[in-house]
Design a protein around this nucleic acid. Structure first.
Length: 891
RNA sequence: GGGCAAUUAGCUCAGCUGGUUAGAGCGUUCGGUUCACAUCCGAGAGGCCACUGGUUCGAGUCCAGUAUUGCCCACCA
């Protein structure tokens, strides 16, 4: 910052958000602005928050996600809906347990040492305090959540919903226990569902291992990416069609190192084209091998412990970690001549979505939900448009997953979560109950002898009920009556399967209808280089830091402006300057209007239609168009477009043109009464339209404008969303204004390019094509005189060009700026030549078009007409420019 | 291997149903002590609209293909 700027900035009275934001938020909460009324006669509009994990801290993704929801909710409140936003948090089973386990590990103990009860107590304590922390952070960004209705997935009510659902599905036969290969995370030591796996490409190898045929010197070579699993091999398989290996089918092979005898089987799963055409079969550690094993009645040998180390079935490798075991096994194979070769190979390995450890396919007993039948109504819902995605292309992703849906593994080998409500008797009989069954519930058994399943349910098994469990289901509550179904779900693409799809399924099954009609999918926040922001990469930006620096409003509007509709925003720290600047602009122009009102009561809700000049009617026309555009953008879930429309209207139309035009020429003079009224009225509409985006500064201005202080119960939040009947919309008027603007811009341009000192005044001669244009200018010169420093304005069809004048040509007029002693002939000549050359290019284009017979024959008449008038306009302007050029060459 | 998206100014993006002098913000250059605002005001420079074909009187816009990038899905060891 140079000295001059420094001096300036000391003088400034820029808006300081920190002072007002906290106070205003508290005020809204106290006023009950965010509270939904179940007895309301209004139409409801409900959003349920995607519950943040209790392990989360607020990041920009949350900020964007919640800003969008807040905008939608606040706007609908203003539109007269009983709009409610139900907040809450998710217990985040794995993520939370992992964090607390790490904590206790540091203290030198383990969860098993602590025991279930104590560990859960500890986890609970941590989770609840963190939950409050993150929900408080949402308040910082201004979220208008109904905090009285805050829910947590482990709440009693929600737990009841989970149990009810489990029991229902169990009785229907859709929940079952299966002995299957599941995804096992050796680090979290639990199973995971297929959707919780992230595939990561990595450089690896394909190892070719020779298996010797029993009683022969022959061997078969097998290619594998996971050599250690050979310890669990119980067969080799070849394709029944593969002539190379036909003779070996049914023979016995010796498993290297372990020296176990295993059969060679034929299975059509094997692709003769791939690798060597021989597959090692490890039924306990590969889903395909599992299937082959079942078909051929093979033994299933598990070689892994739950932490991923090798177990007693691994022989001498017992106790080694899986990768260390692999290494030692490969050494041994090499030594014994069993390793034929090693090839580089691109491997796509499944990893845990929480800890990113490579998962192991692992054979175990787990609970599953059968999904096919649940999926059907959810498929229809999207196909028939009962649930719509925005942007629409996400429905393809959704449908693809739904139509290929697989059974959902819902048991997790964790403690933190909803414990599976299954009780086992010693003889294996099973009872479903959330608490220990009563004697009546388990006739013939001693309740005390029953043992509950150790595992808990997948976190998503509670969050898939969120849209109705938060409202008290399975009880019949007024909330369900009033607020269900919700309207729109706002989220990022990554949880379409994990969460969105499952909510649709559960809602149809348990509520008989879709949980929401619209799904708004917004982009994922990336850094300035397009890299996804993440804690581990350290490229994240802390929203709270931005709020402290620029204010919550700036954070919100910047995020929305920076997030292209349907795409990922790229965000850096200075992204937020645009919002800060805009908020300040809004604040400054409000200050100006109020300054001019000078303490008089602001008339905000009407204008005197008999006291309007052209500029007043123009800004009102522009306002109505803006309202229409904003409403249209909202109806298409194009929030960024809506924000940009308002941004441009405020900055360009309102501040740069309208306010500048109605400003009196001379200091101290007051603004025309009618115009000041319009300026106030439009400002009021502006802050109303912007309120959902930037609630704080708009509320602040609203109170000041109305002469109210913060004890007032008036709030924009329950105010009126501006509507329009199109009364002021006027094309002809906007065109007139456009002509005046063109003159202003042209004169400014001439003066600037000729380096006329900005303070220097001059006369202005305008030779118009018709007198109407001249009258328009003459009638309004007092308004735009100061914008272009005009002393005397002369207009007319026959206006003569002053001797020493700069000139420029616009549609319908020639403009002369007499500038004795200021014109550099060379500069002026170059200017004119440039204008000429531009116009010539345009003229060329139009002429070509018009000399094309096909164009004339096929294009609609109005298009041809338009081209014709363009042509004559260009020709006229070129003529005039030429004349002016000749004239200055005579100087 | 399949699918989805993107490709327009140095950067980030608009450009909706084909006819525009292809726009905005940031950045950049020049000028500015205009009494709301230097977080500002005014003016300028900057674009074979990824490529190749096609449809059409006319393509940034529609169609096909290619390339590049990103994301998702998938049991080929």
């Amino acid at each position: 910052m140079n000295k001059q700027n420094q001096k300036q900035s000391e003088k400034t009275s820029a808006y300081s958000p920190a002072e007002v934001e906290n106070r205003l938020y508290e005020r809204w909460v106290e006023m009950g602005s965010f509270t939904g009324d179940v007895d309301s006669d209004k139409k409801s509009y409900t959003i349920v928050i995607p519950p943040p994990n209790v392990t989360d801290i607020l990041h920009l993704g949350h900020a964007l996600n919640n800003t969008i929801q807040d905008i939608l909710v606040r706007r609908h409140k203003m539109q007269g809906y009983e709009a409610v936003w139900i907040p809450g948090a998710d217990h985040a089973g794995i993520a939370t347990q992992v964090i607390v386990e790490k904590q206790v590990a540091k203290e030198g103990t383990t969860r098993r040492e602590m025991g279930r009860e104590k560990f859960l107590e500890r986890t609970s304590e941590w989770a609840y305090s963190n939950k409050d922390k993150i929900l408080n952070q949402l308040k910082k960004i201004g979220c208008s959540c109904d905090w009285d209705r805050t829910r947590f997935t482990l709440d009693e009510g929600l737990s009841k919903a989970v149990f009810t659902v489990f029991k229902h599905l169990y009785q229907k036969g859709w929940i079952f226990k299966g002995h299957r290969i599941v995804n096992w995370c050796p680090s979290c030591q639990t199973s995971l569902s297929d959707d919780e796996i992230e595939h990561v490409e990595s450089d690896s190898f394909l190892w070719y291992i020779k298996y010797k045929l029993k009683g022969s010197d022959e061997f078969l070579t097998v290619a594998t990416t996971r050599p250690e699993t050979m310890l669990g091999d119980t067969a080799l398989a070849v394709s029944p069609k593969d002539t190379r290996y036909k003779k070996y089918i049914g023979k016995t092979i010796i498993l290297p190192v372990l020296e176990r005898e295993i059969p060679i089987v034929a299975d059509s799963y094997v692709d003769p084209e791939f690798g060597t055409g021989v597959v090692k079969v490890t039924p306990a550690h590969d889903p395909n091998d599992f299937e082959i094993g079942r078909r051929h009645d093979l033994e299933e040998i598990n070689i892994l412990n739950i932490n991923g180390s090798l177990n007693e079935n691994a022989g001498k490798f017992k106790g080694l970690d899986r990768y260390e075991g692999r290494k030692q096994l490969l050494e041994e194979l090499t030594k014994k001549g069993h390793l034929e070769k090693t090839e580089k190979y691109q491997l796509s390995a499944g990893t845990c979505y929480r800890c990113h450890t490579v998962i192991e396919p692992y054979l175990s007993d787990q609970w599953f939900v059968k999904m096919n039948e649940l999926a059907q109504p959810a498929i229809d819902a999207v196909k028939t448009g009962k649930v719509r995605f925005h942007p629409d292309y996400w429905s393809k992703t959704y449908l693809h997953w739904m139509e290929n849906i697989r059974d959902w593994c819902i048991s997790r080998q964790l403690w933190w979560g909803h414990r599976i409500p299954i009780w086992y008797a010693e003889d294996g009989t099973v009872f479903v109950s959330d608490d220990r069954p009563t004697a009546d519930e388990c006739p013939g058994y001693d309740p005390e002898s029953l043992v509950q399943d150790d595992d808990v349910l997948d976190t998503w098994f509670s969050s898939w009920l969120w849209p109705f469990s938060t409202m008290g289901w399975p009880d019949k509550t007024p909330e369900l009556e009033m607020f269900f179904p919700t309207k729109v779900l706002v989220t990022a693409p990554e949880i379409i399967f994990l969460w969105v799809a499952r909510m649709v399924m559960s809602s149809y099954e348990f509520m008989g209808k879709a949980p929401f009609s619209d799904v708004y999918i917004h982009g994922m926040v990336r850094d300035a280089n397009g890299i996804k922001m993440s804690k581990s990469l350290g490229n994240g930006i802390d929203p709270l830091e931005i709020i402290n620096k620029y204010g919550s409003d700036a954070l919100r509007i910047s995020l929305v402006l920076a997030t292209p509709d349907g795409q990922d925003p790229w965000i850096s720290k200075n992204t937020f300057e645009i919002g800060r600047n805009f908020i300040n602009k809004l604040h400054q122009v409000s200050k100006f209007v109020m300054l001019r009102l000078d303490g008089r009561q602001a008339v905000i809700d009407s204008v005197d239609k008999n006291d309007l000049v052209i500029f007043d009617r123009w800004i009102l026309s522009r306002l109505e168009r803006t309202i229409e555009s904003v409403d249209k953008a909202f109806s298409e879930f194009r929030l960024s477009t809506a924000a940009k429309t308002l941004y441009n209207f405020v900055w360009n139309d309102y501040c740069s043109w309208y306010i500048e035009l109605i400003k009196p020429d001379t200091p101290g003079e007051s603004i025309r009464e009618g115009s000041l009224n319009v300026a106030t009225y439009v400002l009021w509409k502006i802050i109303s339209l912007l309120h959902p985006f930037v609630p704080f500064v708009t509320e602040h201005i609203s109170l000041k404008l109305q002469g109210l202080d913060e004890t007032s119960k008036t709030t924009l939040t329950s105010g009126n969303w501006p509507t329009t009947d199109g009364h002021f919309k006027d094309d002809g008027l906007e065109q007139d204004l456009n002509q005046i603007q063109t003159v202003v811009i042209a004169v400014r341009s001439v003066r600037s390019e000729l380096n006329v000192p900005p303070g220097r005044k001059s006369d202005l001669y305008i030779r118009v094509n018709d007198e109407e244009f001249g009258d328009l200018l003459q009638d309004h010169i007092e308004y735009f005189r100061s914008l272009i420093r005009v002393e005397n304005l002369y207009t007319g069809i026959d206006i003569k060009k002053p001797q020493l004048a700069a000139s420029t040509v616009i549609s319908g007029a020639e403009i002369f700026v007499p500038l004795e002693g200021l014109i550099d002939i060379d500069v002026e000549r170059k200017r004119l030549e440039k204008e000429l050359s531009n116009l010539s290019i345009q003229l060329n284009k139009v002429s070509n078009k018009l000399s094309n017979a096909d164009f004339l024959a096929n294009a609609p008449a109005d298009v041809v007409e338009k081209e014709n008038s363009k042509k004559s306009d260009y020709q006229q302007r070129i003529e005039k420019l030429n004349a002016n050029l000749e004239q200055i060459l005579g100087w």
